[in-house]
Design a protein around this nucleic acid. Structure first.
Lengths: 349, 349
DNA sequence: CTGAAAGCGCTTACAG
DNA sequence: CTGAAAGCGCTTACAG
């Protein structure tokens, strides 16, 4: 369908040329205040809205930002997309959303489409720490990596400070009396998988804990459930399990329950992310909550700056998370430890 | 940044005109097989990809579908967006996502942007049954309403069969021995709020239940929690609470627990939607699961047909949900009812 | 079957 | 400060 009211109509109504009308509306170039007023009035009366397609073809800017996430079905990414969409819209941009489903090839394909579509910028949650780099580096518009990073693509990045997060979780379970710990997290495919594990490992050496062999899989409920089986199979349970995501913690707790292990009575459990569901989970999940809105704001701030041509050195913003304490680490009968000693309670199903 | 390889370059390499190159690539018009092959080879060698912006300006089609949801943070909509994005991509379309945050004005604004952007079609989850109509009816491209419907906009619609869903829930709790029921759902602002309530009301008259006064708020955890307070305040609890969404059920169960009411021992509870979280909730939530993939597929099917010019009568597709039985309605000690009689167990906090 | 030309609706040097 | 003109990269009548 043809446009109803074009710039041509506005120019005609205002009695000026197409060029002047364009400049008056855009507020660019030297145009008399008088002319600007006349043109703007005409545009308003006619209900003129610039055609983004024509502008994009000519000016090269689409005012669209592409965002690619591993999977929108993960509540954490849903929260992130929500925050991003809102802020982007405030800035006058639209969001083109793509889901890589964690697949590298799909990710590359979607990034290529972003290029074809001439998005002005890209927000990417890379699917693979070591292999997402090339596709990101090859993008035709500025890229900001969000939540996760990949090697080999020197772009701005915004994410949570995993070091701080892990320390919060560890100090908390320590305060609650835990002495033996098991880490349940994700493998080395993602930066968060690596960083959270390394943060845990580094901190544990300087703290009065005994750490059992870590279990590493994926950021998923299923993976947490598998970890529960593994833990129970080992025999002695730790005082606490520190996980790398809320989904993992959910799966872990749910499966431990089936094994007859009661949280927090038998084991303390912490999550990571702070998704809304952690609050209504039973028991409420103590978790390291990410400042999602701040992450979105910073990421978009970086992206807008790059889009304006900012060529300052690449920067990485690490935002501090906060600990939200709930039932999964708090028991009515006070801190664990003294009462239970260092050996975990063994529960058979 | 200027395009690297344009149609012009392809035409030159193939030794044909721009027009012929365009037709050969599009597979439109009469072009000799020989020419088509030559042009396609040249395009492949040069790595040519059509510029969607230029094509859109000229041809009017963007191959972008806009989708507006009340809030992507709601796991049900996240699931829906996930399914839609996947299918749309299979069909060669991109997804422009907008979030109305349940506000009518925002919804209208986002729909206007979709028009400006010349999306080829719109998938909408209307925020208001009675007031979203005009904005939808005024859209410049085909619209399919998904999950919810609004009055006054005669568009295709796809959603779950609420009648079937409610019947599944009611028959199930009946089988489990419940005789007294309370409905906890959403108000009249959305079509699902109305339909689920009316389905409940209509069915209850023909079934051997005694229904207590319904409680209606929003499709949210907070609303479910408030309903729990209300229920407990009334004194006698029903044998079962049938809710209109999983989020409501979560809030309800979590708050009832704080009041000392144990599910399913004291009250059976059912949800609606079938979001992934229902499975790991404790107790697992028995819920009416929506066929999300089928809903997405149907919606996109309708939309594509309209985009192709199909002008058959407006149709509405109602997809049957299925019941997923979990712990919130199943107790080890068998059906309720006989043991507990018709009066609900009263629990004080 | 193929090509020359117009044109989608803007923006932006280039003149004046 | 303002206008005439070119052109972004395609598609599509219109001729032939």
């Amino acid at each position: 369908m043809p446009r109803d009211v074009t710039l041509h109509a506005v120019a005609e109504a205002a009695g000026v040329s197409l060029a002047t009308a364009s400049r008056a509306l855009a507020g660019t170039g030297r145009v008399s205040a008088q002319t600007v007023a006349t043109v703007r009035r005409a545009a308003a009366e006619l209900g003129y809205r610039v055609d983004p397609i024509a502008r994009a073809l000519r000016a090269g800017s689409t005012r669209i930002v592409g965002m690619i996430v591993p999977v929108i079905g993960n509540p954490f990414f849903a929260q992130l997309v929500d925050a991003v969409e809102q802020r982007l819209h405030e800035e006058g941009f639209e969001l083109l959303l793509a889901d890589s489903h964690g697949e590298l090839a799909e990710e590359a394909r979607r990034l290529a489409v972003f290029d074809d579509r001439r998005v002005d910028g890209i927000l990417a949650v890379p699917s693979d720490r070591r292999r997402s780099g090339p596709a990101l580096a090859g993008a035709g518009s500025p890229v900001v990596q969000v939540d996760r990073t990949s090697e080999g693509s020197a772009t701005d990045a915004v994410g949570v400070d995993n070091q701080v997060g892990m320390r919060l979780a560890l100090e908390h379970v320590g305060d609650r009396g835990a002495r033996t710990l098991t880490y349940v997290g994700a493998d080395d495919v993602t930066s968060n998988g690596v960083e959270r594990f390394e943060a845990f490992s580094g901190l544990i050496d300087r703290m009065p804990f005994e750490a059992y062999a870590p279990i590493r899989g994926e950021f998923s409920v299923a993976s947490g459930a598998a970890a529960a089986d593994e833990l129970v199979g080992r025999g002695a349970l730790p005082d606490a399990v520190v996980t790398a995501s809320d989904l993992i913690a959910f799966g872990l707790v749910a499966r431990l329950r089936e094994h007859g292990v009661v949280i927090p009575r038998d084991v303390l459990v912490t999550g990571f992310d702070g998704i809304p569901f952690a609050e209504i989970f039973s028991p409420g999940l103590t978790t390291v909550a990410q400042p999602v809105d701040a992450i979105a704001a910073d990421a978009i701030g970086f992206l807008l700056a790059r889009m304006r041509g900012d060529d300052s050195p690449v920067r990485r913003s690490l935002l501090a998370p906060t600990l939200v304490v709930r039932g999964s680490t708090t028991r009515d009968d006070g801190p664990v430890g003294t009462a239970r000693g260092r050996s975990g309670t063994r529960r058979e199903r």
